[in-house]
Design a protein around this nucleic acid. Structure first.
Lengths: 162, 162
DNA sequence: CAGCATTGATTTGCTAGCATACAATGGTAT
DNA sequence: ATACCATTGTATGCTAGCAAATCAATGCTG
């Protein structure tokens, strides 16, 4: 079935002889890099406020679903429960968030924002708009829409494939 | 200058009163998610061969730049030296790669592939093609090119902004 | 209502990234 | 030559993911 290739040199020959998928590769590569550029940028900008990009994302989602359980937040953020839990724990340590027990179910802890987070949200808001303007410069609305559509299709395909 | 917002409720009001950037947000959100979907997929598929997506990337780059120093590989992969070093170290522990001292400069260690990696490259090749076909289903070549162009523009903007 | 399955959250152990700091080596300018 | 600076690789400490196991509380079912 699969060709027997035992040395790196053999693989180099094999690889040279087959058609390339350079565009596909380039697209994946770009996604990979862009994603890290985004992370690093937000990490750097917000470092002085002791906020990471991950905590930024978490705060945004908590803002939109205040009172949700940790598991719900994990689902919404497409994270494992453990990962979500530890981000929330750090946010709580910083006094931006609090976990309150659910009165009806002693297993769950619901997450609420605390007022000390308000200035952080102002900062995120400002920086978010600044970033949008800078990064999207020269990308027209139609172009942006088709970008989103294309990415969503890939995402759907990937999710469907399991 | 910046409005004084001291409570979450005040921020909610402030946020409601301003124009939204839902498309921009959606695009960033999508990039974030897609990137993790990619990582998780490759991690899962290759887990049985004890290969992570990060190691996959590293092997690809080493393949294309055999004999490079660790710093060079870090630069190519847009990684910090430390991160690149630890990935390479793991690859070496698995016997897929070896680090040889440079005869002229005792500081540098150059990275070479070892033959036991050959079957891994075959697997990566197969799985890569399978993934490309699945994920890009229904995305025409023109569409793909404009996706790449759009992402590249955003990447350039982001890099230019520092 | 007793036993078992399910669910929420946490713990542990691994990989991976960043930033920073450091030792050793190499290069350069005086 | 030697004193200073740059570069390479590594070490350390932090955040962040995943997976798998665990614990407690709840829900379901016979």
């Amino acid at each position: 079935m699969t060709q027997d290739v035992r040395t790196i040199e053999q693989f180099r020959a094999f690889e040279r002889a087959q058609p390339r998928y350079t565009d596909h590769e380039e697209l994946l590569y770009m996604l990979h890099e862009l994603s890290r550029i985004i992370s690093v940028h937000f990490d750097r900008v917000m470092a002085r406020h002791h906020l990471t990009h991950s905590q930024w994302w978490a705060l945004m989602h908590i803002f939109q679903h205040e009172g949700a359980t940790q598991s719900e937040i994990a689902t919404i953020m497409q994270l494992g429960r453990a990962s979500a839990g530890s981000v929330i724990e750090r946010l709580e340590a910083k006094g931006w968030v609090e976990r309150r027990p659910d009165p009806k179910d002693n297993r769950v802890r619901r997450v609420y924002l605390r007022d000390p987070a308000a200035p952080i949200f102002m900062l995120m808001n400002e920086e978010g708009q600044r970033v949008f303007k800078t990064w999207m410069a020269g990308v027209g609305p139609g172009e942006e829409a088709s970008l989103i559509a294309g990415l969503r299709r890939i995402k759907t395909n990937a999710e469907a494939a399991g």
